[in-house]
């Protein structure tokens, strides 16, 4: 009986793991359910040539701007030297950080909340001595800022825009006027929910910030 049970567990567990490998290899339903995160081994699946950081800004009724993450009580660095807010690559949770900071602090009434992405090419991360070995020109780093979302003080999305990398990809493609015209045809009136931005599909209305 005990051996029968252990054989069932062996077969069941190995089948589950192999199902994960199968789904991963053939891109089959890998984003269906959070449970898939536990059987799909896609470590380091993405990469970027740009280093990114997130900034969460509150605009007070007086016009003063405030830093909403990290909160004034300090940073939380989960994996190295970076604060937790910088690990929200898709911008799903940044607004929650802002709302928590507002709940826990004393402040004037807010007019708007903003989520901003900062990016710079990763070559500028090279230490100066290594930079000198590879480049002849001086290091001249510049950050590029990309507004990701504008929110009401209670966290309702007013407008949302893609990441800098998506913007650059779109700009490269949208040099085609016909394509640009086709995309404008489907632009909705309301801001779309960022959670619908799954996989590689860009929801309609989530394209370039041409009108901000």
């Amino acid at each position: 009986m005990k051996r029968c049970l252990s054989n069932t567990l062996i077969v069941g567990y190995l089948s589950l793991l192999m199902y994960g490998v199968f789904c991963h290899a053939l891109y089959y339903r890998i984003n269906d359910h959070p449970g898939m995160y536990f059987i799909v081994w896609d470590m380091y699946c993405g990469w970027s040539a740009y280093e990114t950081r997130n900034h969460i800004v509150g605009e007070g009724a007086s016009g003063q701007f405030y830093e909403l993450a990290p909160g004034p009580w300090g940073e939380m660095k989960p994996h190295g030297d970076l604060d937790r807010r910088h690990y929200d690559y898709n911008g799903f949770h940044s607004i929650n950080l802002a709302l928590n900071t507002l709940r826990q602090t004393e402040h004037e009434p807010m007019a708007r909340l903003y989520v901003v992405e900062e990016a710079w090419p990763r070559k500028y991360n090279l230490p100066d001595e290594l930079w000198a070995q590879r480049y002849t020109e001086p290091k001249d780093m510049q950050s590029y800022y990309q507004l990701r979302g504008t929110y009401t003080p209670d966290g309702q999305a007013i407008q949302q825009w893609p990441t800098l990398l998506t913007r650059l990809q779109q700009e490269a493609l949208l040099n085609n006027p016909r394509l640009r015209q086709d995309m404008q045809k489907g632009k909705p009136f309301y801001a779309v929910d960022p959670t619908s931005n799954l996989g590689n599909v860009t929801p309609v209305g989530y394209e370039l910030p041409t009108d901000r």
Binding site: H55, V57, G58, Q64, F65, Y66, E67, L68, G71, P72, W73, T101, Q104, T105, E106, H107, Y114, V116, E118, W120, P121, E137, D140, Q142, Y144, Y145, Q146, L147, L164, R167, L168, P209, R212
Partner: peptide, 27 residues
């Protein structure tokens, strides 16, 4: 307590919220 919010440099914020800059050719 409760702590006040940290004020940000308005020039930096205007740069953040302003029009997106094109990528420099050298980047």
């Amino acid at each position: 307590g409760p702590l006040p919010l940290k004020v940000m440099d308005s020039q930096l914020v205007h740069e953040m919220l302003g029009p997106a800059k094109p990528i420099r050719p050298k980047d």
